[in-house]
Amino acid sequence: MLLITLIVLGIVMTFFLVVFVTDMIKSHKSKNQKYHKSEVIMAFVFLAPAVVMMFFFVILPIFMSLGYSFTDYDLMRPSDIGIAGDGFDNFRQLWKELSEHGLILDALINTALFVALVVPIQIGMALLLALFVNNKKRGTTIFKVCFFAPVAISLSVTAYIWKEIIPVDDLNTRYIAIIWIVFLSAWQGCGFQMLIFLSALGNIRKDLYEAAKVDGANVFQRFKTITLPGLRPTMLYILITVFIGACRVMVQPMLLTTYQSQTVTISLFMYKQGMEYNHVGYSCTVALFMTIFMGSITFLQRKLLGEKKK
């Protein structure tokens, strides 16, 4: 454990040092130097706390999780960690459960269904709400507050309120339960994306709309040719963040139905395996699988929808 921490710390510090030295050399050699040497040093000093935090809370856990995925780490026996079989037992177990239609396949299907539905619905709702409140008319602020209010409410509270609204039989029925969770999540989350869209809408030049109006473009044409292209970078950011958030859905199904096959998600499955069944090693394997899956999709999203380089 200490050895892993030291190795990863060494790698990060080396990387940080290399970047620092390179920057110093660049600032020294460059004739049109943008920054003074002292400014570069100051920048790295300010950066250091963030790098330290990132090391302990992001980089180290990722490396540890990767390492644990090859072990038989049992939460209740933290001092007795060994390699799981030949090191790939957890991966074989994962494949076995996937191929034999184990609960993890239900989790995968439910997560995929949730992501496929919640991403367009939540982003669509957020955009509609942003367009609705994007004006200077009297009373608009009250709508903004109302639409944003669910974001400020704790997800646990929201889940308990919706538990009273959703028919009990629906929560016990495959697919229907997930659809309810999609509505709950979209309703709860879209207010935040609405604010981001609103800010992006404010950055689109007004004269473009005026010119389009003069040219006789209708509302739909103006939206298609001015608004949507203007929102493209924001849309990509929102798409990636909502997608990643959706892949990690856990609290809503956990509070609405606990651990049931009709609502289990990959994150919930991971949590259950690691924190309740004590199979931390296996849980880390599932986490690795999920990271690769999410990373691939995010990469594709950036490739397909990314900004064209100038």
Binding site: D169, N172, T173, R174, T257, T258, Y259, Q260, S261, Q262
Partner: peptide, 10 residues
């Protein structure tokens, strides 16, 4: 067991 009870009706 609770998973069975939950899906028993459907």
């Amino acid at each position: 067991f609770r998973m069975v009870i939950s899906s028993l009706g459907s």
